[in-house]
């Protein structure tokens, strides 16, 4: 079994989704922790220091390349699997199986992922792109990201889109977290129960934390 055969098989493709998914989950942990510094309510001092460490240090910047690679792989492989899976049933049922036995979000990973992708385009054009272009995409000086957040989240429609984007992410994670471990072969009941609980907890915490960020600015909780 060559590497090509392994990673182009249906199980191999799912392994790619699982591994990149876990990698992106780790990124979310870093992202949410750093962003939580806005609640220090010190006018963005702590947050901007964190952002400076991530933006002007060579190690996180190299990891950023890995992050993009993982993200792109997850998106492309995910979309390809979605289209391939949809093509496997030529004639649809007149009476659909629907939600008997499976959660709606587990059946909607492709749609949720696409919503997250659309949100990511807006999100990166709001923050990542202006910041990195200001740095000439190297280790130059960043913009005041705290101030940027403040102005961005002063508009209601942006806040609403961010909340919806984060909810999509939450439901994507609610299935993706535990599914990734099953794909990697965790079949033992005792681990699966723990991982499923951690997955749900993680999804809720990540969603609430990210949703509260634009809301905190919009509702004027932060100076």
């Amino acid at each position: 079994m060559t590497w090509k055969q392994v990673f182009t098989s249906s199980v191999g493709k799912k392994l790619v989704m699982g591994f990149t998914g876990i990698f992106l989950i780790l990124f979310l942990l870093v992202h949410v922790s750093l962003n939580a510094c806005i609640w220090a309510n010190d006018g963005g001092k702590m947050f901007n220091a964190g952002a400076h460490f991530m933006g002007a240090n060579v190690v996180p910047r190299i990891l950023e390349i890995g992050l993009f690679a993982g993200l792109i792989l997850h998106i492309i492989q995910g979309l390809m699997l979605e289209f391939s899976n949809r093509s496997k049933r030529g004639v649809a049922y007149a009476n659909n199986y629907g939600n008997k036995g499976s959660k709606w979000y587990s059946r909607s990973m492709g749609i949720l992922g696409t919503l997250i992708l659309l949100f990511l385009i807006l999100h990166m054009s709001n923050f990542w792109f202006p910041n990195r272009s200001h740095q000439n995409f190297m280790l130059g000086e960043e913009i005041d990201l705290y101030a940027k957040m403040k102005t961005t989240f002063s508009e209601l429609w942006v806040v609403i889109v961010y909340v919806l984007g984060c909810l999509s992410l939450g439901y994507h994670l609610a299935h993706g977290f535990q599914s990734a471990f099953k794909t990697m072969g965790v079949h033992n009941k005792k681990y699966n129960q723990i991982l499923t609980s951690i997955g749900y907890g993680f999804s809720v915490i990540i969603t609430v934390a990210f949703v509260m960020m634009p809301l905190s600015f919009y509702l004027g909780w932060l100076s």
Binding site: S10, V11, K13, K14, L15, L81, S84, N85, K88, R89, Y97, K100, G101, S102, K103, S106, R107, M109, H175, Q178, S179, F181, K182, T183, M184, G185, V186, H187, K189, N192
Partner: peptide, 26 residues
Amino acid sequence: GACTNTGACEATCPKEISISNIARLN
């Protein structure tokens, strides 16, 4: 198609085959 661990198979199986077998296969 490829598996997405939705669990619809396990719920409908007349012999109640557990979806944990899929993780074991993986």
